[in-house]
Amino acid sequence: MLKRLLPILFFSFSSLAYAYTGSGLDDEGNPIPINQYDVVGDRILGENIPHESRLVWQRFTQVIPAQYRQEIQVFEPIDGNYGIDGSIHAISDDKSIWVVQLDIKDSVSKYDLDRTMIHEFAHLLTLRADQIPLADTDDATVRNNCRSYALPDGCTAPDSYLNHFVSQFWQPLLPVSSNEVDVSNRYQTHINEFVTEYAATNPAEDIAESFAEYVLAEQLPPASSIANKKIRFFDHYRKLRLMRKNIRANGKL
Rank of each mutant, 00 (worst) to 15 (best):
D79N: 12
K95D: 14
L9C: 10
I44V: 10
Q62R: 12
L6D: 06
Y161K: 01
M243V: 03
Q70S: 13
N185W: 01
R143C: 02
I84G: 08
F121M: 04
P175Q: 11
R59D: 07
D136G: 11
S184M: 15
E52T: 06
L134H: 03
L125D: 02
I64G: 00
D159Y: 07
A66K: 05
D27N: 10
R115A: 14
T141H: 09
P133A: 12
F211I: 03
D235N: 15
D79Q: 10
D103H: 02
R143N: 07
A217N: 11
Y187A: 06
A199Q: 03
A135V: 13
L5S: 13
R244C: 06
L9Y: 02
G83S: 10
Y82H: 14
R69K: 14
A66I: 13
P152V: 04
D153P: 01
T141S: 10
D139C: 07
S160Q: 07
V195E: 02
F13C: 05
P33N: 08
T201W: 03
P65H: 14
N179G: 15
L127S: 10
V176G: 08
I191H: 12
R59K: 11
A140M: 04
G86E: 00
F10K: 11
C155T: 14
A122E: 08
S14G: 09
D103R: 04
K229E: 14
R143F: 10
A17W: 01
D136T: 09
S167W: 05
R232Q: 11
V56W: 00
V40C: 03
D139S: 09
A140I: 09
V181C: 03
A200H: 09
D182R: 12
W170N: 07
R43H: 11
D26E: 04
